[in-house]
Design a protein around this nucleic acid. Structure first.
Lengths: 341, 341
DNA sequence: CTTCCGCTTGACAGCGCTTTCAGAAGCGTC
DNA sequence: GACGCTTCTGAAAGCGCTGTCAAGCGGAAG
């Protein structure tokens, strides 16, 4: 392994001062064409790559944007990350991703790590860490939150209207004639899960449909939890004709449980999700769900961060989710299977 | 925004030299307990976080491991990343992820970026960039490749036996009595896609099954391409009883196309994938596929990198994929639907 | 021909940290 | 009490780059 070549080497080799090389590298000032060419030739010949750490140290900017996500492999956060990546493309900033796994302690460690790395800005995706910790960090670097309302930083939060999304789902089902609607919620510790549950309850009332506690189950946003919750619901003898899940992943689990019991979707039971993951277009049947444009949310967050870094004061537009009707919902069966116990 | 506090501030405040603070931070040398306590108190009080860039510059290690992935939002790479993250946990190293999007030029840019950031090591996931570029980089930092055999660096490549995986699939289908087996391949530019196609052809021959070119289609590993290829195959009048897809995502697309045509899985057509994505347990019906343990592969890669960084010379064990039989495959129909054109 | 202006360029002082080197204690021993 | 040894600690020299400052240069203006 050869010694890494530094800007100084380039300067010597090209017979100019380090300052000049730096200026050529950053376009900070004019340099006579012949010197520039000479230096560029040397850079190329020596395969010189500037040391970002040194640059960061010297000019106080690391050109990286910290991203606190929860679970890098979840389809939901994965798409958001891709959006952030795309939003940052073309700028000289780069994302630095750390996972918090929905665990306050890990989230705090992740934040520490990002601060240590002196990120120039921060994007926070969900999470359960207290607002105070985020406010603390926001005092040091520009911060944008996605899918979570941080007290005192609301104008920096990209939010979606969970209640409106679920309301659309319930209305859609009501229009199809469903009266017995089951619901699988997410964890009460997650902000949006609470909003979706409350939204469901409100919408049911609004549509004049009875809210039956035995038809309300809690999962944790994973496929497995959706499957288990659905099995419990089915063990009641299927006293429902529609099943609303608080996210697509649980709907996927629910779908499997229904399949195992030979319950047809949507002929026997209509099934809905929330998020519109990419793969939800490909479930059997394709899932009726609420589109979140996770991708665009990520991109929007990234662009907002860039604006903040450029010294602008961008305003956030609340994101309105959109109901996507596919084939997993249909008219309520004429003779609804009544509870069998 | 307050001025960031530096090690120097801490030193002054605690009445010791910067060297001492550094030593306490890194445990580099003994320090008398009272000084240590004093310094630690100040660190805490001032909320001091060491600047990683400066540390990196001073001691020549950035404590970050570059990861060249292809598509951060793909379920396949997402799980690998999670594995890498987990494998690096506990060490002081941290992953720095960049996407190449299966595009040689972007991959090269990603590599440049990582070298600029002076990553201490590199993990490469797939990709289409030439071996030479990777060898070039490997001369500078330890490199581990996953799912790709880099010439001259084979001992640093975590590989899976694609041919063996597909062979198991074909044998499984043959045992179930299928004789007319269709295949949807990936792009010829991707190494593993080629291996899977070749593996399929070899396995068909080995099982004494006829290889019919009209039943061989090419996709690009996306759901949409699987769907389109399946539609084409179905337009032939369904002269096949089993459909082998080169990855799970295409199988998902295929599943939708079959659903649309009212073809039952597995009663009319048996369907298989490759990769065993987490969500493949939850398709309707659950997908028979080849398990890749993407997660563990990532973790293994990370651990290997750590070993390399510690100066050891770890040996790679080739990974043997495993057939997972679920419910999307079944006996060949008694009276196979013959080609209808 | 001198003066002034604008542009290019190099010297140099950091950025925040680590690490070597050598001095200062502290301790045991003769 | 002096000597040598081991620890602990501070001064100082970088790590690779940027940005300020002032010098040097050529040409335009007087």
């Amino acid at each position: 392994m050869s010694v890494t070549v530094t800007l100084m080497h380039v300067a010597r080799e090209a017979g100019v001062s380090p300052s000049t090389v730096s200026r050529i590298l950053n376009g900070t000032a004019n340099v006579t064409p012949d010197k520039r060419e000479r230096v560029e030739a040397v850079i190329h010949r020596l395969n010189f790559t500037p040391n970002v750490q040194a640059q960061a140290l010297a000019n106080g900017r690391s050109f990286s944007v910290g991203v606190l996500t929860q679970n890098i492999s979840s389809p939901f956060y994965g798409e958001t990350l891709a959006g952030i990546e795309r939003g940052l493309e073309g700028s000289s900033y780069h994302p630095l991703v750390v996972s918090g796994h929905w665990h306050a302690e890990q989230e705090q460690q992740a934040l520490d790590l990002l601060m240590r790395r002196r990120v120039d800005a921060l994007i926070v995706l969900g999470g359960v860490i207290e607002d105070a910790a985020l406010q603390n960090v926001a005092a040091r670097v520009p911060l944008v939150a996605v899918g979570r309302d941080v007290g005192g930083l609301s104008e920096r939060c990209v939010l979606i209207d969970n209640r409106a999304g679920i309301r659309d789902v319930v209305r859609h089902l009501a229009e199809l004639g469903h009266r017995d609607v089951a619901f699988i919620a997410g964890l009460e510790s997650q902000h949006d899960a609470v909003e979706r549950r409350e939204g469901f309850e409100a919408a049911m009332q609004e549509c004049g449909l009875a809210l039956r506690s035995e038809l309300m189950r809690a999962g944790d946003y994973t496929e497995g939890s959706g499957e288990r919750a659905t099995e419990e619901l089915l063990s009641l003898g299927r006293p429902f004709t529609a099943l609303v899940c608080a996210n697509d992943q649980m709907a996927l689990g629910a779908r499997l449980a229904l399949y195992r019991r030979g319950v047809r979707v949507p002929q026997d039971v209509s099934l809905t999700g929330f998020d519109d993951l990419f793969s939800s277009r490909y479930t059997t049947p394709p899932l009726t769900t609420v589109h979140q444009a996770v991708n665009e949310l990520g991109e929007l967050a990234a662009q907002t961060v860039l604006r903040l870094l450029a010294g602008e004061q961008p305003r956030m537009i609340p994101y309105i989710p959109r109901l996507i009707v596919r084939e997993s919902t249909g008219p309520a069966p004429l003779s609804p299977a009544t509870g069998g116990h």
